[in-house]
């Protein structure tokens, strides 16, 4: 049985069954029961353990065959009841391993992409600029993503995800392309950001050092949770 969430009541409850195969040939079978609270939850495990499948299913990019996903009070997925909230209505942020910055947009336009547009373009850009400043990359606003260093692109991707005001943030091996000192810096910054904002965050990694950042550590293998430990 999974442990109680580290940060009080569960923000996310996921009981999921995702079959193997389907549109991604190598996608492993996933069978998990997980409750995530506020704070940083780190999910580790070997390649093929189902970590990325878990994030994609929570974000709504994959449909589980059975199970429920509940975020706060909202049911995002209930296969039995025929409920499936599409990804664009979930407000679940996802930072990919590849970062997936839009190559045809500037850094500022990338970050503004997910900002609520109801208050007009000026407000969207101001919000995007504020997030770039907060991630210490305010000077890169006019640059093309292809000109950024790995660390810069990482900060921009994180700013873009946060600017969309997600209720849950999912990070899929976001530091994997960075060297060790930069990983450590960004990891510590992320830890502080999550602590300040209280945003429930799931970080998937196979790096042991990253795993130490979490308030809680979940280890997966072969599509199942094999260990679930809150930091003392």
């Amino acid at each position: 049985m999974p442990g109680e969430p580290a940060g009080g009541p569960a923000a996310l409850q996921a009981r999921l069954l995702v079959p193997a195969g389907g549109d991604v040939e190598t996608r492993p079978r996933l069978d998990v029961d997980l409750r995530i609270g506020a704070g940083l939850t780190v999910v580790t495990g070997p390649s093929g353990a189902g970590k990325s499948t878990l994030l994609s299913t929570i974000a709504g990019l994959l449909r589980p065959r059975a199970g429920r996903v509940v975020l706060g009070d909202e049911v995002l997925v209930d296969v039995d009841a025929g409920v499936f909230v599409p990804p664009y209505r979930r407000r679940v942020g996802l930072v990919f391993q590849s970062l997936a910055l839009f190559p045809h947009l500037t850094v500022l336009e990338n970050v503004a992409f997910g900002v609520d547009g109801r208050h007009g373009d000026g407000d969207r850009q101001a919000t995007a600029r504020a997030w770039l400043e907060r991630m210490r990359v305010g000077g890169l606003a006019g640059r093309a993503p292809s000109t950024l260093s790995g660390g810069e692109a990482q900060r921009v991707a994180l700013a873009r995800a946060l600017a969309a005001r997600p209720r849950l943030l999912l990070l899929d091996e976001p530091f994997s392309a960075l060297d060790a000192p930069l990983r450590r810096t960004l990891g510590t910054e992320l830890q502080a950001l999550v602590a300040d904002s209280g945003l429930p965050t799931i970080l998937v990694t196979h790096d042991a050092e990253d795993a130490a950042l979490g308030d809680r550590r979940v280890r997966m293998d072969a599509g199942r949770v094999v260990d679930d430990t809150a930091r003392p």
Binding site: S56, A59, G60, L61, P86, P87, Y88, R89, R90, R91, V92, G93, L94, F96, S98, A100, F102, P103, F113, G114, D116, R160, A161, A164
Partner: peptide, 19 residues
């Protein structure tokens, strides 16, 4: 088009039409 860009856009709240 890289499907991850399409997925990223949809997690940022963009409807299929806007994507």
């Amino acid at each position: 088009v890289d499907p991850r860009l399409v997925a990223a856009a949809s997690t940022l709240g963009a409807s299929p039409w806007r994507v």
